[in-house]
Computed example of a mutant assay.
Amino acid sequence: MIRPNMATMLGFVATDARVAPRALQALVREAADRSFNRITIDGDTSTNDSFVLVATGQAAHDEITALESPEGAALREAVIAVSQQLAQAIVRDGEGATKFITVRVDGGRSKEECRWVAYAIAHSPLVKTAFFASDPNLGRILAAVGYAGIADLDQSLIDLHLDDVHVATKGGRHPAYQEADGQRVMKQSEITVRVDLHRGAAHATVWTCDLSHDYVTINADYRS
């Protein structure tokens, strides 16, 4: 039952940096949006979640008032990196998870539509069970892209990669694709799915996992 919006999670990050409240508020929102709000186990959310960024101000430097400054940019990079590491750890420890999957969608007209596509893939039970079975079922992934809710999507432009393997091009199977290559990737414990919509310059990334027998067992036995 994990899909941050946020979900069933308490996250804490602390720094000794001296940061102005307005800059800190902007940073915690961006960090959450690029980490904890980019993971999903099963798409089910709860209200029991918080992400807290604490700055103690104990460091001996001038107060950071803008994230665009050199000091602010360094802090921003560090906080986002730590937040993403923590968020990804939740996915790796997901109920019954055996594989860690990065879903990156490029070529969208907006980040929002890229997120729609990424989450459609990450939430699909058919896609997730295919990952568990190490089955390079490109049809399931392309179907998820198709029903992601982009009304004017031209599926004949879509490219799909599984790690370094070019699986589909122009909406169909790549002429050079061999299923053995796809299965080689699907057997890995960490997999990257890359979709290019070829309709813009926006992109988005979501992290998820597979759906295993243990997921069903854990949640069937669970009582609140």
Rank of each mutant, 00 (worst) to 15 (best):
residue 207 W to C: 04
residue 40 T to V: 10
residue 38 R to P: 06
residue 7 A to D: 04
residue 128 K to D: 07
residue 22 R to A: 14
residue 88 Q to H: 12
residue 31 A to D: 03
residue 168 A to I: 12
residue 159 D to G: 00
residue 179 E to I: 07
residue 22 R to E: 12
residue 44 D to I: 05
residue 198 H to A: 15
residue 45 T to F: 00
residue 188 Q to K: 14
residue 129 T to E: 10
residue 4 P to C: 13
residue 6 M to L: 13
residue 183 Q to R: 14
residue 102 T to N: 09
residue 74 A to S: 12
residue 98 T to L: 04
residue 82 V to S: 02
residue 51 F to R: 02
residue 66 A to F: 10
residue 89 A to H: 08
residue 156 S to T: 15
residue 86 L to E: 04
residue 99 K to L: 07
residue 132 F to P: 01
residue 96 G to L: 07
residue 187 K to H: 14
residue 181 D to A: 12
residue 117 V to K: 00
residue 16 D to I: 00
residue 178 Q to M: 11
residue 223 R to N: 14
residue 36 F to G: 02
residue 224 S to N: 14
residue 189 S to G: 10
residue 12 F to H: 14
residue 192 T to I: 03
residue 189 S to E: 13
residue 111 K to H: 14
residue 177 Y to R: 01
residue 105 V to P: 00
residue 141 I to R: 02
residue 49 D to W: 08
residue 65 T to V: 13
residue 115 R to S: 04
residue 130 A to T: 05
residue 23 A to T: 06
residue 118 A to H: 02
residue 29 R to K: 14
residue 223 R to W: 06
residue 79 V to A: 03
residue 104 R to V: 09
residue 156 S to I: 12
residue 34 R to T: 09
residue 83 S to Y: 01
residue 180 A to W: 10
residue 117 V to Y: 06
residue 200 G to R: 08
residue 213 H to D: 15
residue 60 A to N: 13
residue 214 D to K: 07
residue 96 G to V: 07
residue 106 D to Q: 11
residue 193 V to W: 01
residue 41 I to D: 06
residue 86 L to K: 03
residue 63 E to S: 09
residue 223 R to M: 10
residue 126 L to M: 13
residue 118 A to G: 08
residue 212 S to I: 02
residue 149 G to M: 14
residue 175 P to F: 13
residue 72 G to N: 10
residue 215 Y to A: 01
residue 108 G to D: 09
residue 79 V to D: 04
residue 3 R to T: 09
residue 221 D to F: 01
residue 149 G to R: 14
residue 74 A to P: 05
residue 162 L to K: 03
residue 62 D to N: 11
residue 141 I to S: 05
residue 42 D to K: 05
residue 37 N to P: 03
residue 187 K to N: 15
residue 32 A to Y: 06
residue 46 S to T: 14
residue 75 L to N: 01
residue 49 D to H: 11
residue 195 V to Y: 04
residue 150 I to K: 02
residue 20 A to Y: 10
residue 2 I to D: 04
residue 216 V to Y: 06
residue 160 L to W: 04
residue 54 V to R: 01
residue 139 G to W: 10
residue 175 P to T: 10
residue 196 D to W: 07
residue 42 D to A: 06
residue 189 S to T: 13
residue 64 I to F: 07
residue 102 T to V: 09
residue 95 E to N: 07
residue 73 A to Y: 12
residue 174 H to W: 01
residue 105 V to W: 05
residue 101 I to L: 13
residue 177 Y to F: 15
residue 170 K to Y: 14
residue 110 S to K: 04
residue 129 T to H: 08
residue 8 T to A: 10
residue 1 M to H: 14
residue 198 H to D: 15
residue 113 E to R: 03
residue 200 G to H: 08
residue 14 A to Q: 07
residue 99 K to H: 05
residue 64 I to R: 03
residue 20 A to S: 15
residue 149 G to W: 11
residue 96 G to I: 05
residue 74 A to Q: 12
residue 10 L to A: 06
residue 161 H to T: 08
residue 38 R to G: 01
residue 149 G to H: 11
residue 173 R to T: 00
residue 127 V to C: 11
residue 98 T to V: 08
residue 197 L to N: 01
residue 182 G to W: 03
residue 109 R to Q: 15
residue 125 P to A: 10
residue 64 I to P: 00
residue 196 D to Y: 06
residue 170 K to R: 14
residue 148 A to S: 15
residue 78 A to S: 08
residue 134 S to C: 10
residue 50 S to T: 15
residue 55 A to W: 04
